[in-house]
C-alpha cells in the first residue's frame, strides 16, 4: 500500500516539476518580449522602416538592414534549395548502401553541428577572397546557404522517408523510371515537409549574425543593395551595432528592430506550421 502511495507522490512531483520547467522558459520569453515591446513599440512607424541609417537616433531607420536581410534571404534560398534537395534525393533514393554513403551521412549530420562562426571563416576564405566576391550579398548568401544546407538536406530526407514505400512500388510497377517516380510522386507527396524544413532553416539564416560579421558585412551601409555584388547589412548586425552605442535613443531603435526581426521569424515559422498541418491532413 505504502509503495503505491509513494509512487503516486513521485508521479505528482514529477508532473509539477515538468510544468515548472515548461513555464520557466515561457515566462522568461514573455518577460523578454514584453520589455522589448514596451521599449520599442512606440518607435515603430513607417518612417522607421523606410529611413536610412543615421547618426541621430531619432532619424535612423532600418531600411538598408531590412532590405539587406531580404536580399540575403532570397539569394540564400536560391542557392540552398536546389543543392539541398538534390543532395537529399540522391542520398535517399539513388545512393546504394555503401561505406561512402554512410560516410557522407555522418558528415552531413556533423556539418549541422559546426558553429556558425566557422562557416563565416570558410565564407571569408572561399567566397570573399578566393572567389573574389568581396563582402557582397552574394558572398553572404553563399555562406549562409552552406550553413543551412545540412538542415535542408536532413529535412528533405525525412520527408522523403515519410512517403510510404507502397507509393514507390506502385509507381515502379506501372513502368515509371526512378526520376519519374521522384519528380511526379515523391516530391509532390513530400512537398509540405520539405517546405517546412526549408522555411525553418531560412528563419535561422535570417537571425544569423556572426558569420556575416566575419565575412565583412557592414554595420553602416548608406544605401540598400541594388545588385547581388553590393555591400550589405542585415537586421541582426544593425541591432548589434545599435545596442553597443551609449546613447539611449539607439537602445530604443534596437528594441524596435528586434520587434521587426522577431515578426519576420514568427511569420516564417507560422507559414511552416501551416504547411506542415496541411501536408499531414493530406497524407491521411
Amino acid at each position: 500500500m505504502n509503495n503505491i502511495r509513494t509512487n503516486r507522490l513521485k508521479d505528482q512531483a514529477f508532473k509539477f516539476w515538468g510544468i515548472a520547467c515548461t513555464f520557466l522558459g515561457l515566462i522568461l520569453l514573455t518577460i523578454f518580449i514584453g520589455s522589448i515591446l514596451i521599449d520599442g513599440l512606440q518607435r515603430i512607424d513607417w518612417d522607421f522602416i523606410t529611413s536610412l541609417p543615421s547618426r541621430k537616433a531619432e532619424r535612423a531607420g532600418i531600411y538598408t538592414a531590412l532590405m539587406g536581410s531580404v536580399w540575403i534571404l532570397v539569394f540564400t534560398t536560391i542557392i540552398a534549395l536546389p543543392l539541398g534537395i538534390a543532395a537529399a534525393i540522391y542520398l535517399e533514393e539513388y545512393a546504394k548502401e555503401s561505406r561512402l554513403s554512410s560516410l557522407l551521412e555522418i558528415n552531413i549530420s556533423n556539418l549541422a553541428g559546426v558553429p556558425s562562426i566557422i562557416y563565416g571563416l570558410l565564407g571569408l576564405e572561399v567566397f570573399v577572397r578566393i572567389m573574389e566576391m568581396g563582402a557582397s550579398v552574394l558572398a553572404g548568401s553563399f555562406t549562409l546557404a552552406l550553413l543551412i544546407l545540412p538542415i535542408v538536406i536532413v529535412a528533405t530526407r525525412e520527408s522523403l522517408k515519410a512517403v510510404p514505400k507502397s507509393i514507390r512500388d506502385a509507381s515502379f510497377a506501372l513502368g515509371a523510371s526512378k526520376w519519374q517516380t521522384v519528380s511526379q510522386q515523391l516530391l509532390p507527396a513530400s512537398f509540405g515537409g520539405i517546405l517546412t524544413g526549408v522555411i525553418l532553416a531560412l528563419s535561422r539564416a535570417v537571425g544569423e549574425t556572426a558569420p556575416l560579421i566575419v565575412i565583412g558585412a557592414l554595420a553602416y551601409v548608406p544605401f540598400a543593395p541594388e545588385s547581388p555584388m553590393d555591400e550589405f547589412s542585415v537586421l541582426p548586425i544593425q541591432i548589434f551595432n545599435w545596442i553597443s552605442r551609449p546613447k539611449h535613443g539607439f537602445e530604443v531603435n534596437a528594441a524596435a528592430a528586434i520587434i521587426v526581426l522577431l515578426l519576420i521569424t514568427f511569420i516564417l515559422n507560422g507559414i511552416a506550421v501551416y504547411f506542415r498541418n496541411r501536408w499531414q491532413s493530406k497524407l491521411k
Binding site: 507502397s166 507509393i167 513502368g175 497524407l283
Partner: peptide, 16 residues
Amino acid sequence: LRKQVGMVFQKPNPFP
C-alpha cells in the same frame, strides 16, 4: 517490361 507485366499489391496503394 513493367508496362507489359502489371502488378497489384497487398494493401491498396493509390497515389495521393
